[in-house]
Design a protein around this nucleic acid. Structure first.
Length: 153
DNA sequence: GCCAACGTTGGC
DNA sequence: GCCAACGTTGGC
């Protein structure tokens, strides 16, 4: 496994359970409309990478499970669909602006590891999650990955 | 729903 | 090329 990431989603829109229900647990991770997040997706996320699925904009924000990347970046089809919420009139097929990846469900935690608990762990103090709050795709170190998984047991 | 952080956009 | 306005995100 090459690298680790944290992907944020709103569970009301598409959470860990939605991913689990997909055929073979494989779903498209799209709708990313933030440039920093897009650059990570497009340039650095590769097949085999591990993903922490993070639930935001909900009662208890936190890490809800894990997944792995099964298809690297390709243009997000929704940007070309005028009926979609994610439509972008400035994007063209020749010069797409937004990208997505496919990920496969790996595990759902019995209980979410809350943001509040993460903030209290000294070894996690350098997580991008805490440093830059509003970034929906972000790198996670191997140490942080292991530590979060340990917090579920 | 408020507001803060960050990146892009666009007028000049 | 400066910088104000704007869009997106997300905890509270």
């Amino acid at each position: 496994m090459a690298n680790y990431w944290l992907f944020k989603s709103e569970p009301d829109e598409y959470g860990i359970e939605d991913l689990r229900k997909e055929r073979d647990g494989v779903g498209r991770w799209n709708g990313i409309r933030n440039y920093q997040a897009r650059n990570f997706l497009r340039d650095e996320v590769v097949v085999g990478d591990g993903v922490l699925i993070y639930h935001s904009q909900c009662k208890v924000p936190g890490v809800a499970g894990t997944a792995k990347v099964v298809k690297a970046a390709y243009p997000d089809p929704a940007q070309f669909d005028s009926a979609s919420d994610y439509f972008d009139p400035k994007a063209t097929r020749e010069t797409p602006r937004w990208f997505c990846v496919d990920i496969q469900f790996d595990s759902a935690f019995d209980e979410v590891v809350p943001l509040k608990a993460i903030k209290q762990q000294e070894p996690l103090g350098e997580m991008v999650l805490l440093k830059q709050g509003r970034l929906s795709i972000q790198p996670v170190t191997a140490k942080e990955w292991k530590y979060i998984l340990k917090m579920t047991s």
